[in-house]
Design a protein around this nucleic acid. Structure first.
Lengths: 183, 183
DNA sequence: TTTAAAAACTCTACGGCGTAGAATAATTCG
DNA sequence: CGAATTATTCTACGCCGTAGAGTTTTTAAA
């Protein structure tokens, strides 16, 4: 945690980044979150060394989550459908590539991936004129749908694919479109 | 597991039902799934006794899930909106009353709560004339939304309520209504 | 009445987990 | 050289699920 960057003291072979990257790599490779012991073995270090950089395992997992944010599509254009599809797909890909992080992600209070998704969702829908309430309702529906589907994907190993997002998502977009047409 | 009901052998103080009921009660009380050790302590029995009735812990949790099915609303009427609301609310209540069972539930292949929800969903929407594809899309959207929201509820301890289901659900129902009007 | 079979349950133990707390190692500054 | 500072390791505790062998309690056959 509080790692001083001054030159005094024993030099470090480890770093928060190295730990996070290693944890991420192991998770992608094995499909599940590594134990602290397995992680430290991979880093060729004592398990307790991890705790010099992270308060506890949960703090480490939050750091992993934060490092994933950059993989979320950042909408810039005015084609809201295309942006929503790209946004949803990138988010779902992220979630399904890193199973087991969902709980951590949802318990994060600050600027986690979920929060970032919501911000970019709102940016993507800027071209649409809609009452705030409708915007909120559709947002909650979409966000929690994605979380739920990601959970289902990790439950039924491999049977579900990212492509199956398309159907429900197009239903959702039609709905939004009609709401906009009415306003 | 394979519990013979014949009269031979030592009589049993335990039963699969008693174990399941106790596990359920402890889970509702503490908000999390009990360990086998804690469960067996409550039952005043050796931990390994549980394994006479269940192959492993996961099988026990599946049994708990099965016992929850009866709490799911069973639509009989023709007012599809009312039925969907009741169905969704009962399902979400179930999920939020029994946190930690979501993963088990989603990994169940046979007739689990999720499967039953889907059957009753289809029954509820019988009055509506809709293409099968639309029916599937909206179903997946709703089911996974509910799972995602349940997960969010258990993540952010107590901050989210069942009432917050109303907004997204009404958006979803408006969408379905418009799809039906168009057909 | 003894005995064997059967069923229900207990005992002991293993290997895993997260992590607390004390000890040690390696560096820099006075 | 010694003291301070930082990084890392060592040892140990209390959880967890559960394998495998042993024990208790019953019924049915000999």
């Amino acid at each position: 945690m509080s790692v001083k960057t001054g030159k005094r003291g024993r030099p470090s072979q480890l770093s928060a980044e190295r730990i996070v990257e290693c944890a991420k790599a192991m998770q992608v490779k094995t499909g599940k979150i590594p134990s602290i012991r397995a992680l430290s073995a991979e880093l060729e270090v004592d398990p307790m060394a991890i705790y010099h950089y992270f308060r506890n395992k949960s703090a480490l997992l939050e750091a992993v989550c934060l490092s994933l944010i950059e993989a979320i599509h950042n909408p810039q254009g005015e084609d809201w459908r295309a942006e929503i599809v790209a946004l949803s797909q990138s988010y779902l890909t992220l979630l399904s590539t890193h199973p087991g992080l969902l709980e951590t992600l949802l318990s994060m209070t600050g600027t986690g991936p979920a929060q970032v998704f919501i911000e970019r969702y709102e940016r993507a829908l800027r071209p649409l004129v809609l009452p705030q309430e409708t915007l909120n309702q559709s947002r909650d529906l979409l966000v929690d749908y994605l979380h739920g589907y990601a959970l289902a994907m990790q439950g039924s190993q491999g049977a579900l694919t990212i492509e199956l997002l398309d159907g429900p998502l197009s239903f959702w977009m039609r709905a939004l479109e009609r709401e906009a047409a009415e306003a």
